[in-house]
């Protein structure tokens, strides 16, 4: 299972980076999303896959020896991934709006437009 997931991570990274290298900025964002998913899957995989129960300890187990808890899935990667997903979500939303604003001003989303400087002489 781990090796399968590793290959999936690799594919997501490769496609993500390929998309990020495209000249269209929207495609860059798609690439970022793919790579973000690859990273989330990476964290999930390195957090050890346990085929067991959800990481919620029932009340009856509370007084048992600590070793029992090994049968539960690792809750930490899930917390990390959740945080990462939320942050990625916010970033994607912000960048999409930013690109939209840029498009309305520049009438293009080609990376070439970023080359020349348009600094105003005085700060408004």
């Amino acid at each position: 299972m781990e090796s399968l997931l590793s290959i999936a991570v690799g594919i997501l990274f490769a496609t993500g980076i390929y998309m990020m290298l495209r000249r269209n900025l929207i495609k860059f964002i798609f690439g970022f999303m793919l790579m973000g998913n690859g990273i989330n899957l990476l964290i999930f995989t390195v957090g050890r896959l346990t085929r067991g129960t959800a990481p919620i300890v029932p009340e009856e187990l509370e007084y048992l020896d600590g070793s029992v808890i090994q049968d539960f899935a690792n809750p930490l990667p899930q917390a990390l991934i959740l945080t990462a997903i939320v942050i990625g979500f916010g970033f994607v939303a912000f960048s999409l709006v930013l690109l939209y604003r840029t498009y309305t001003v520049e009438k293009s989303l080609d990376t070439d437009m970023l080359q020349e400087s348009v600094l105003p002489e005085v700060t408004p």
Partner: peptide, 13 residues
């Protein structure tokens, strides 16, 4: 927002 995206250059397509 009212989105009206039209690809204007080759790379945009």
């Amino acid at each position: 927002l009212e989105f009206d995206y039209q690809p204007s250059s080759e790379a945009d397509k």
